[in-house]
Structures are given as C-alpha cells and as structure tokens.
Write a protein that binds this DNA or RNA. Structure first.
Lengths: 182, 182
DNA sequence: CCTACCGATCGGTAGG
DNA sequence: CCTACCGATCGGTAGG
C-alpha cells in the first residue's frame, strides 16, 4: 500500500491522486484502505518522514570517521546522489508535495532537510577556509550541489546507460567541481 | 487572472488549486471566471506554453551571432538561470504540473523543452570536440547544468543577498565548471 | 475485507 | 459580472 501510494503520488502528486486509485491498484475497495491508515495524509507523512530521515542518516554514516574535508563532501554528495537514483519516487514526492504535508510532520521534515543542507554548506565552508575549494559563495555552491543531486530523480532510468552507482560517482565529482576543488 | 492562477498553481499545484480560490483572489465569483476561459486547463496551458516558448526564444537570442562555443554555453546558461530567478512561479509550475497538461499542448511543451536540452548538450559536445571542455559525458553534464538552473526557482528570493543578475552570472560560471572548462 | 452511504467540494452550465 | 444549480467525485464513516 505504501508502495502503491508512492507510485501514484510520484506520478500525479498528492492532490492528483485519489484514494480510489490507490485502492484500485491494490485490487480492493476504497473503504478497505482505512483498515491500514487513518487518513490519506498518513501516506504522505510516511513517505516524507521516512525519506528525509533516511537522507540524514545516510549523510551521517557517509562522513563518519572521515577526516579530510574534500573526501567528506565527496562521500556526502555520493550517498545523496545515490539515493535520488535508487529512490526516484520518494525524491519526487518530497520535492513536489512537501507543502501539502500537515503539521507537525511538516516542521519535522523541513528541519531535517535544513540540517542536511547546513551540513553540506558547512563542509564547503570548511573546505574554503582550508584553501581546498575556490568557490567563494558557499551558500550558492551548496544549493547548486544539492539541487543537482535532487534532479537525478527527474531523469534517471534503471535501464539507462549508467547504473545508479556510476551516476552517484560522477555527481560527487561534479559537486567537487562546483565547489571549485583545487 | 493569469497572475492569480500562476501564484496559486506555484504554491499548491494545479490539482491543489480550486477555481474558487482563483476567483476569491480576484474578488469575483467562480462562474465569472468563465467569461475569460473555457476551462481550468486553459490556465495551465497558458502558463506552460508561454514559459517554454520564452525559454526557447531566450536561448536563440542568447547565442545568436556568438561564435565561441564556451561563450555560447555561458550565455545560454546565463539567460536560462536568469529566467528561473525572475520568473520563479512559472518555473515551479512547469516543473511540477507538466504531467497534468492535456494534449496536444503537452507534446508541444515537451518538444520545446527537448529542443532546448538538446541544444545545450550540443554545445557541450561541440566544446568537448574542440578540446575546450573536459567532461566526457555530455548528457550528464547537460542534465547537471540545466537542473542546477531550474533549481534556482526553488530557493531564490527577491530580497535575498544576490540579485537575479548576480545569481545568473554565478550559475553560468558554475555551468562551465560542470562541463569542465579548461 | 465488503456494501451502502455521508457531507463537502469540485469544475462547469443555465440564464439573466 | 451575478445567483442558482448540475452531476461527478472527493475523503471518510457506519455497520457488518
């Protein structure tokens, strides 16, 4: 059910998806959905909280025990890019329907996102101070890097010429270039 | 009315916006909207066709009469980035609700988009052949460049530290770095 | 898991 | 531009 909702939300958006369509995809009647959820909103909340919590956890695991700041940024962007190639639907829903999430979940999700963005920008700041990156505007560089990764969800195909891992490797390299690695 | 629809579509999406909300923003009743449109879909079509046609025109004007391939890519990304900073709402709607556009407008919009993407990738290919860019995968580089610009619409603020022009200049510089300008 | 059904709201029309 | 109103569909509930 989570999976059916995910597919439809990614395809048509939260408001563009009717519960009847989710039920139909599962071969059951609409009211039967309420044996598993309390409201349509629950499905959106599940997708958004699981995904953003996963992003934050990925980040922490990626940089754990790594000292070199260039390597930390490289690993952080690699796992972020990888997630967007491997979990396209989740990424599309997060970026499209975050405004339709009700409180308090919305604040929780936005705070996790903000933590992640600040962490990436922090790495770029560190790298600049250490003379490893040449891009002076770390805010701009951080947005550029993050959003470039997010966009992978919009074009990546499993049957395309590059695997998710290959794309992730390439993007972590592009990220370093955006930061102006020297 | 176009403007009211644009604001609401950008904020809540096409399916998340009711005609009654558009009418309310204009201080009139819902049925009065039908003196100006035939259907809600007309509003979406107007936003999407105007915007994508504008993107394509911007591109052509930007590269017209410019021979150097690096300069062509720089100018093309500059106008594309500039549009995303100056017309945030339009960009958000295009990227969010293109799937909700009905035929034949949908095909028209997708073809214009594709032409633009191919043009950008073509410039990168040219640059690589001429030994001006070092990124071997032009498809990946083109996606990276284009989507980085698109994302400006998601974070740019008129009252932020950088003007639209400054952001556009910076992004055209980042684009050259993504292509691996040598 | 189902049938039967609820009030609310949707996009849109009739008629002025 | 309005009031009055349409059928369809929405998310959700009652009751089994």
């Amino acid at each position: 059910m989570y999976d059916a909702a995910l597919t439809l939300f990614a395809e048509r958006g939260y408001h563009g998806t009717a519960l009847s369509q989710i039920a139909s995809m599962l071969g059951i009647r609409t009211p039967s959905l309420y044996n598993h959820i309390h409201a349509k909103q629950d499905l959106l909340r599940d997708v958004l909280t699981r995904t953003t919590e996963g992003v934050w956890q990925d980040y922490q695991e990626a940089v754990e025990g790594v000292d070199d700041v260039v390597e930390r940024l490289s690993r952080a962007t690699r796992v972020y890019a990888l997630r967007h190639a491997q979990h396209r639907r989740e990424a599309l829903v997060v970026n499209r329907d975050i405004a339709n999430l009700e409180e308090p979940a919305r604040t929780h999700v936005l705070e996790l996102r903000r933590s992640h963005a600040r962490a990436i920008q922090g790495l770029i700041d560190e790298g600049i101070e250490a003379g490893r990156f040449s891009e002076p505007n770390s805010t701009l560089a951080a947005f550029g890097v993050l959003e470039m990764c997010v966009s992978i969800a919009r074009w990546f195909r499993d049957d395309g010429p590059l695997s998710a891992e290959e794309v992730a490797d390439k993007y972590s390299e592009l990220a370093l270039r955006v930061a102006g690695v020297v």
